[in-house]
Every structure is written in structure tokens, then in C-alpha cells.
């Protein structure tokens, strides 16, 4: 028996080390879930003869937490949203892409070439941009949906049937828009009002979940869901009778960016991958899959024609402003954390 155990252990150990020894020619991506078509990954893998390993996360905050908890040095690239790029750069988690390293850097649209969250595109390239608002099941509610009250002070038909994103940034920014106060305000009365409003809104909410944001709308488990525009479009295409709202109070606009992580184990492949995603044909494939908008020139010929006309990408004339999520200073952030914990209690 002992010898059997011994040889099993030896055999098994061999399998493990054999698996780990394949470290050459890899690219390790830390990405949002359901956000890149498998065919595109396969294409990159085939063109460059690398093995792609991908892990997924479901919020910018979860990405940061994982990297801070010792995952640095294991991933090559990640895809944080605008404000998270700024935070990650501030935390020293990003490597700098030197001038001339990216052959296709010129493809970046001028409006995204020098964003406030990454001046000069030192660490990142644009991936996709879009908006975050919410979608409402039109079979359940036929009234006016273009107001943030749908989320925070809903009509009786929708109360208790609302799914919120499990993402502090998105919920807080939307709440600030609803109250008409600036984001990251350090004004005590405003913070208190924010806290009180969220506490009373919570009674109307069924769940917090980002991963199932689409699924609950398709299955009908939720009648209102806070959701990203493209994810909402996918839900609609999968049969959910929903309409995406553009609240008059405003809505969240975001841009996700591919960043080069510090201590990337396969830095050269990471650069190749970023260059790959700056090619219009490739990034257009992401847009066609995820239903968002690319930040690269020349994608138009490769885009699915229905993309331009989808209602989720075309705000009505009376839509409020689209705003980026702001990075709060530590003092306000700690109060935000506190409000968030109380909210989820």
C-alpha cells in the first residue's frame, strides 16, 4: 500500500510540475467576465504562439483588492475602468509603456489620447467605453423611466424587484446624481443626505449583484437592473423585454483601459497584446461582442451595423449629462466605505 501511495504521489507531483513548467510564451490577462470574445484570444494566441491564461473579476474594486493581496507579478495586463487606472497608478501598480513601444499608439482617437485619468497614456490604451445606467422591464412598468428615481425611489410596481450592481463606485456616483450633489463631496450635510437616501432606497432593492446583472433581467427575476449599456443590449437580444434608461439627472460614463501591470512576467507579450488591441479590426471584434464603443480610429468598417443604431448607445435629446466616476480622497473614501458597509448590512 505504501509503495502504491508513494508512486501515486510521485506521479501526481510530476503532473503538477509539468503543468507549471510550461511558463514560456505565456500571456496572463486579468479581465472582466464576459468581455472579450474567445475567438479574438485564439487569434492572438495563434499569431504570436503564446498560451493565454485569463482570470476574471466583477468590479474595479475586486481587481484592486486582488492585486493588493499579492497577485502582483502574476498577471501581465488588466482592464480597469477610468478612475481605477488613476488609483492603480497612484498605488504604483502600473508599469510605464515607453514611447515607441506601441506601434499602433497613433490609432487612438484624439479624444482618448490624453485622458485625465492617465495623462499622455503612460500606462494604458483604450479598450471600450460606454455608460452605466439601468434597464427596466417594460412588461412590468410602462411609465417614464428616464429618471434616477426608478432606482432610488421607485414606483410601487418596481419596488422590491431591483438589482443593483455590487460596485461601490457605480452605486455612489448614481446616488450623487440622484441627489444633485457633487461626487466625493466632503460636505457633511450632503454626505448625511446621501447616507439617508441610500438607506431608505435599500428597502426597494432585491439584491446586489454584478455578475448576474444580465441574467436577472433575462430570467425576469428582477424588473429593474442597474447595468452597463452593452450588457443591457445583450440582455435585450437574449429576450428580456427591457428598455435602457438615460436619466435626466445624468448617468455614469466610463472607459475601460488595458493597462500594463508592474512586474508583468511576460512584458513583451503584454505589449504585443496591447498593440493587437489597437488594431481596428481586433478591437471592433470586442465591440461587436460586448456591444460597447471602441476608442480607436478606423473601426467603422468592421463594426456590426446594428451596433450604431442600438438604443443603448443613442441617448435621447433630453438625457442628462454623462459623468465619469471620480476618485475620492482618503477621508471621503473612508466615509464612502462606511456608508457602503451600512448599506449592505
Amino acid at each position: 500500500m505504501k509503495s502504491i501511495i508513494k508512486s501515486t504521489v510521485a506521479a501526481a507531483a510530476l503532473t503538477v510540475t509539468a503543468g507549471a513548467a510550461l511558463a514560456e510564451g505565456q500571456l496572463v490577462i486579468y479581465h472582466w467576465f464576459e468581455y472579450i470574445p474567445q475567438e479574438l484570444l485564439d487569434k492572438f494566441a495563434a499569431e504570436n504562439d503564446v498560451e493565454i491564461i485569463m482570470d476574471t473579476y466583477d468590479s474595479n474594486e475586486a481587481l484592486l483588492a486582488a492585486l493588493k493581496a499579492g497577485a502582483m507579478g502574476t498577471y501581465d495586463v488588466a482592464v480597469p475602468g477610468d478612475y481605477m487606472v488613476q488609483i492603480m497608478a497612484g498605488e504604483g501598480l502600473l508599469d510605464t509603456v515607453a514611447d515607441g513601444e506601441l506601434a499602433n499608439k497613433g490609432n487612438i482617437q484624439p479624444q482618448w489620447a490624453n485622458p485625465s485619468f492617465d495623462p499622455g497614456r503612460m500606462h494604458s490604451i483604450p479598450y471600450q467605453w460606454g455608460s452605466t445606467s439601468f434597464a427596466v422591464n417594460r412588461d412590468v412598468y410602462a411609465g417614464d423611466i428616464n429618471t434616477t428615481s426608478i432606482l432610488f425611489d421607485p414606483p410601487a410596481e418596481l419596488s422590491g424587484k431591483i438589482n443593483m450592481l455590487d460596485s461601490q463606485g457605480e452605486v455612489m456616483a448614481m446616488a450623487a446624481l440622484h441627489l444633485g450633489i457633487p461626487q466625493c463631496s466632503s460636505d457633511r450635510d450632503q454626505l448625511k443626505a446621501l447616507n439617508d437616501m441610500l438607506q431608505s432606497a435599500k428597502a426597494h432593492w432585491a439584491s446586489f449583484n454584478s455578475d448576474t446583472a444580465k441574467e436577472v433581467l433575462v430570467s425576469g427575476d428582477a424588473a429593474v437592473g442597474q447595468i452597463y449599456d452593452g450588457f443591457g443590449a445583450k440582455a435585450r437580444e437574449e429576450g428580456a423585454p427591457i428598455e435602457y434608461a438615460f436619466p435626466r439627472e445624468g448617468y455614469v460614463v466610463w472607459m475601460d483601459n488595458v493597462v500594463l501591470l508592474k512586474d508583468a512576467p511576460n512584458r513583451a507579450n503584454a505589449i504585443k497584446f496591447m498593440d493587437f488591441l489597437l488594431e481596428p479590426e481586433n478591437i471592433a471584434a470586442v465591440s461587436n461582442y460586448a456591444r460597447y464603443v471602441a476608442g480607436v480610429d478606423g473601426v467603422a468598417p468592421y463594426l456590426d451595423p446594428t451596433l450604431a443604431s442600438q438604443p443603448e448607445s443613442n441617448p435621447p435629446a433630453d438625457a442628462g449629462p454623462g459623468v465619469f466616476i471620480e476618485v475620492c480622497d482618503q477621508q471621503v473614501q473612508e466615509i464612502y466605505d462606511r456608508i457602503w458597509t451600512d448599506l449592505k448590512n
Binding site: 466583477d58 448576474t212 436577472v216 433575462v218
Partner: peptide, 8 residues
């Protein structure tokens, strides 16, 4: 499995 069932 968790990674998959999270999304439904």
C-alpha cells in the same frame, strides 16, 4: 464552477 454560476 463558481466563476461560471456567478453569472447565472
Amino acid at each position: 464552477i463558481f466563476g461560471s454560476v456567478k453569472q447565472g
